[in-house]
Amino acid sequence: MAIRSKTFRESYYEDIKLFQTIWIKFWMMLFIIALVAVPFVTDPYLVYIIDISCIATIAALGLNILTGFTGQISLGHAAFLAIGAYTTAIFASTLNMKFWVCLPASGVAAACAGLLVGIPCLRLKGLYLAMATMSFGVVVEYVTVTWEDLTLGVRGISVPTLDVFGYALDSNEKLYYFLVAVTALAVIAATNLVRTRVGRAFIAIRDRDIAAEVMGVNLTRYKVLAFAIGSFYAGVAGGLYAYVMHYIHPDHFTFLLSVQYLAMIIIGGLGSVLGSVFGAVFVTVVPEFIKALAQTMTLVFPALEDKYDDAWNIAAFGLLIMLFLIFEPKGLSGIWLRIKTCFKNWPYTY
């Protein structure tokens, strides 16, 4: 009698299942329970940090689809976030629209902008594309500052509290469940996307665009689509950011933010959905962790108290990123994969 292997699949349906083994389902359930329990077992500050991480995760997913999966480098991701944030802010504060109009509208507005950038950038690659997307960021920043009738310019726009079908999400804990749900949706959608024909076309373009075209991948269509999808994610993240911050200003969406998102996907792992999540959480949480570590160090070694400076945190964070790029170029998802393989093969080491 043949013994069925745990990874043996008998149908296409089994092959495309998201959670393929009982253990994956078990750990996933445990993770969901932990997520639900977070606001009950920790303080609102940590909940706030997770809220911010969720928004960063959605935006990083968008950039990873564009840069990590399709190979189209973008230095203008903050501009798409700005478009999403301003769409929500204007719709919610001026037109009193509900979230179920504002958030999709933010995504669509950013996706349209993505199409606008994607089409003229079709023939650009590498540094040239990076420059073009960076210039787009400058244009958006200029528009948000100068189109005062719409954006209120440098005064910024105040955004009302997020109201979900009459229930005001007016605290970090209430926002938490909403943000986790939207992030879960975004992660599942991205995971599914990369497994479809579209996702495989993206990867083919990234690996060798000429070969992809020879195989029948329509470069124009898929490159523009990657821009639109990546921008849609950024737009939704921008909309959520507006709701969480309650106030947006052109200074919130600078070139530095685009670089930060690029850092997230490099640290997390290019071309990996899980890498986007890891990268976003890492970049958001680690500065806080370094700060806590530095404060603990001053308690353990009181002599350091007068010497400690906040600039240390920034330097330590920069150093950490450098070490990462040198010793773990596959990012956090690479480490995760190794840990998983190690457990899978235990007690064997290969």
Binding site: T42, Y45, E288, F289, A292, L293, Q295, T296, L299, V300
Partner: peptide, 18 residues
């Protein structure tokens, strides 16, 4: 061991709510 103690203290500071 010192680094371990510092790390545990930092994690406790980060995740605890006084």
């Amino acid at each position: 061991r010192v680094l371990g103690v510092v790390l545990v203290c930092a994690l406790t500071c980060f995740f605890s709510s006084p």
